[in-house]
């Protein structure tokens, strides 16, 4: 079965307090050297049919209208073999 992954991240200019909270916790846990953390969402879509241009176009439409809110978020679509 074909898998398509959609990653959704807050736009760089949007404050991400959850990522900041994770980053601040790291030194306390002994993980040094991390300058910044941004938290996002990953969607793994299992397709019933083949990953062709039409399927990818629909997935981009899905990401644009539903999975991401493009007012605050960017997304990427990747095909996994």
């Amino acid at each position: 079965m074909a898998r398509v992954v959609v990653d959704v991240m807050l736009k760089p200019e949007i404050l991400d307090p959850q990522g900041q909270a994770v980053q601040r916790a790291l030194p306390r846990l002994g993980f040094e050297g991390i300058a910044d953390v941004r938290q996002g969402k990953r969607f793994e879509l299992e397709l019933e049919g083949p990953v062709d241009d039409a399927a990818l176009a629909r997935i981009r439409e899905m990401a644009e209208t539903f999975l991401a809110n493009t007012v605050i978020e960017d997304f990427t679509v990747k095909v996994e073999s």
Partner: peptide, 17 residues
């Protein structure tokens, strides 16, 4: 209403969480 884009902008987690 912001998700429908009837109103502009978006709502995010409070800055203090």
């Amino acid at each position: 209403l912001t998700e429908t884009h009837l109103l502009p902008g978006a709502m995010l987690r409070n800055n203090h969480l």
